[in-house]
Design a protein around this nucleic acid. Structure first.
Lengths: 120, 120
DNA sequence: ATTATAATTGAATGTCTATTCAACTGTCAA
DNA sequence: TTGACAGTTGAATAGACATTCAATTATAAT
């Protein structure tokens, strides 16, 4: 979409607040990248894949067995994670082995797990 | 969906790896909660809202102006964040003021911003 | 060569979801 | 009480997306 000055249907109530916050806001593309990163973690299957890969390097069949899912389904998700440089692959014979390619995933996990544990 | 033992269409290749990883895997519901948390952060509008609220407490109109969006659209997203205890609200006269209700959001932001800055 | 297995891929499908639109509630001011 | 404004809400729509299915590639073994 991109910004559209005419989309907003109401007036500013606290001009100073709006001005100050606008000054600090990063660019739209920054937020899009950020949201894309979180969205990649925002699926049960992908989170489980990443958690598993954080334990050990694994091939697709083993991953599928751990997750109780089809190879195809797992492979689709791995492709998505690969395209976004969150996992990387290594071929060996018939198998393809995956590992985490992003240090931040583990750190994000820690915070995320902390978050959900603090829920009644 | 829930787990289905018969969904997997391939054999285990490294039994020890699968066994070890399965041992460490948290429950399905844990992963669902985790994914839900990340999914909430996985939208450009919501990330911008949360970033703005991390700067200052804001009412809906001001937020809409900062984001260049309609009140309705912002309100819908705020409701979602409210239901999931990520923001909280305070009424004052005609206005409703929102603030962050989750310490982990800020920490998650730090990691996320670090992640996207490490991209070529 | 042929068969079997590991993995990927594209299309199709059904579900989820962000925004829009219109109607509505609640509060303040005249 | 009437009008204006802040905000919410439900339904509708259009786009995104996770899984399935079928076909395909690539490697290894017989």
């Amino acid at each position: 979409m991109g910004r559209n000055e005419y989309l907003c249907d109401c007036n500013v109530i606290h001009p100073k607040v709006v001005e100050q916050v606008l000054k600090k806001m990063p660019s739209s593309t920054t937020f899009e990248h950020l949201a894309k990163f979180y969205k990649l973690l925002g699926d049960p299957t992908r989170v489980r894949i990443l958690f598993a890969l954080d334990q050990e390097e694994m091939c697709v069949c083993d991953l599928a067995n751990v997750l109780h899912m089809t190879k195809s389904s797992v492979s689709h998700q791995l492709a998505l994670l690969r395209e976004n440089r969150i996992v990387k692959m290594r071929k060996s014979g018939k198998e393809v082995y995956y590992t985490l390619d992003d240090d931040h995933v583990v750190k994000t996990f820690e915070v995320g797990l902390l978050h959900i544990s603090h829920k009644d």
